[in-house]
């Protein structure tokens, strides 16, 4: 598998095919022979901003870091042992509820969208 081609920037979905995030970056480790292997997926605008780089990337990353709850958390990490299958999406073996919540989604759901009548109706 090619990390850049088959893994990076793919959609991550949970056990029920619900969106979790994108593979914004990957975490690598080296074994005793010096071969790299993937230990985790990093998701969220913080990791994305660092990969985009430049002034815009640093700005995206800084805003995301500021918004994390509590502030200055590291990016959301999903251990590679939770990955069930890599096809056109990266499917996890767990439900989304067991993973850390994306900070912006929670904040908007509580303070903006959740307050509008009908927010709980499909």
């Amino acid at each position: 598998m090619l990390i850049g081609f088959d893994l990076l920037d793919r959609q991550i979905v949970d056990r029920d095919a619900e969106p979790v995030g994108k593979v914004d970056d990957v975490e690598l480790e080296y074994d005793e022979r010096g071969d790299a292997y993937v230990t985790g997926l990093l998701a969220g605008q913080q990791a994305l901003g660092e990969r985009i780089g430049g002034r815009l990337g640093r700005w995206i990353s800084a805003v995301a870091r500021r918004m994390s709850e509590p502030p200055d958390q590291p990016p959301i990490r999903i251990g590679y042992d939770l990955v069930a299958e890599v096809t056109s999406a990266v499917s996890l073996s767990v439900a989304r509820e067991l993973l850390p919540d994306p900070p912006l989604e929670g904040w908007l759901a509580t303070h903006l969208i959740g307050r509008i009548p009908g927010a709980g109706d499909a």
Binding site: I12, P19, D24, E105, A109, I113, A122
Partner: peptide, 20 residues
């Protein structure tokens, strides 16, 4: 682009960023 929940299939509360 960012991998968020989206769409009208979900309750707005569950796609808060999309509706925003």
């Amino acid at each position: 682009y960012l991998g968020w929940n989206w769409g009208k299939l979900r309750r707005p509360r569950e796609a808060a960023r999309f509706h925003t």
